[in-house]
Write a protein that binds this DNA or RNA. Sequence first.
DNA 1: TTCATACTTCGACGGTAGCCGAAGCATCTG
DNA 2: CAGATGCTTCGGCTACCGTCGAAGTATGAA
Lengths: 227, 227
Amino acid sequence: MKEGPDIARIGTLIGDPARANMLTALMGGQALTATELAQAAGVTLQTASSHLSKLEDGSLVSQRKQGRHRYFALADAATGSLLEAIMGFAASRGHLRHRPGPRDPALRKARICYDHLAGDYGVRMLDSLMQRGTIVSEGDDLTLTEKGRLDLREIGIDLEPLSSSRRPICKSCLDWSERRSHLAGTLGKALLSRFLDEGWARRSDDSRAIRFTKAGESQFLALFPLE
Amino acid sequence: MKEGPDIARIGTLIGDPARANMLTALMGGQALTATELAQAAGVTLQTASSHLSKLEDGSLVSQRKQGRHRYFALADAATGSLLEAIMGFAASRGHLRHRPGPRDPALRKARICYDHLAGDYGVRMLDSLMQRGTIVSEGDDLTLTEKGRLDLREIGIDLEPLSSSRRPICKSCLDWSERRSHLAGTLGKALLSRFLDEGWARRSDDSRAIRFTKAGESQFLALFPLE
DNA sequence: TTCATACTTCGACGGTAGCCGAAGCATCTG
DNA sequence: CAGATGCTTCGGCTACCGTCGAAGTATGAA
């Protein structure tokens, strides 16, 4: 009965621990194979396969065949944002899977959120870009200014390929650890790729943490000052 | 295993149809008794009671004893926002509980979102307030300007009681039908109460729809012009 | 073609969670 | 106090969903 969106369906999909683990693993932004996701979830391949088809039916993940592998990824950036929002909510209610472990501080400092930088550093970056006038906000929407285009060109970001897709260049994404916004969208993605390409930071293999090198950290802080 | 927030717990809580119905009913913003929620969910009182204690354990709803009644409400505005976000996501994937029925257009036009106005009219109101310079946005945060304080005083909104609580005066909330932001926070709440008090609009008994009277509608449109 | 790898489908099992009837508290009314 | 109302707790039933072993399909390698 009742009208309106079926939130129970989404809840059920996210509510199973194995599926939640898979989705969390996919928040890393990389496409993963069914086997990898089975490991991440701690279930057998058959079980994982069943979960993945449910997630696909629900449009939470998408699938890409490549040779004899099947790569799964989050369906889109909106899915990542929703998961991040739920994480923030869960954290605010103290629903943690474990007591905050040693890796937790690293996650709070810098982590990957689907395909862009999140955590303290992610929030700082957006704050800095807004202070400098590179980006301005109108409601929820973030817009790249004319001056901003020049700023980015100086840094060496090519904006051409960023505006080609339907996805917005700038988008705000709520950060679960900081409870403030960081930068998503194609620009957020491009900036993170840049940091990784330059060797300023590395993603860790077993978690979503992004670890900056000492040199990379000072470069980053210099590039995105505050005040 | 794994670190981080337990999204599966939130998912499970929202994932049961009976609980989802209760939460949707509570999105109306009114506190409801266990009996009313049992009806809304289509289960017996015993079952509802069990669901409600789970929701309370999970900090999704809060309880208030009053005489021999127990009133339940969403735990806070953040809970309402999360549910609205999930509704938007579900709708975007076409996960609807029913084909859009006759009440659907009314819901899209104006409805209550926890305690403030949502839908086409809610979005219009925030747009208008921002065009007029009453409210400006900084990232996700909305701020009331000095000029805005005067604007509101003219309309007859008393800002004193709004700033007393810890809850922000202005907050943006993502609208699932419009996919844009509308105004939440204590000001959003106060404005809606105002419309209801003035008799411009009435809430319907059986859904979240807000129905404007003919006179109220023109008052509203005049008060919040666009362009 | 034959074998290996990656994954899906089928079938059966088991645990859990939702469900309700009945009984037990708590609170208001008379 | 007795009776009514609102809600919770208990106990038992049932159905569903997650789980895995085994078998089946698809792709690539030898």
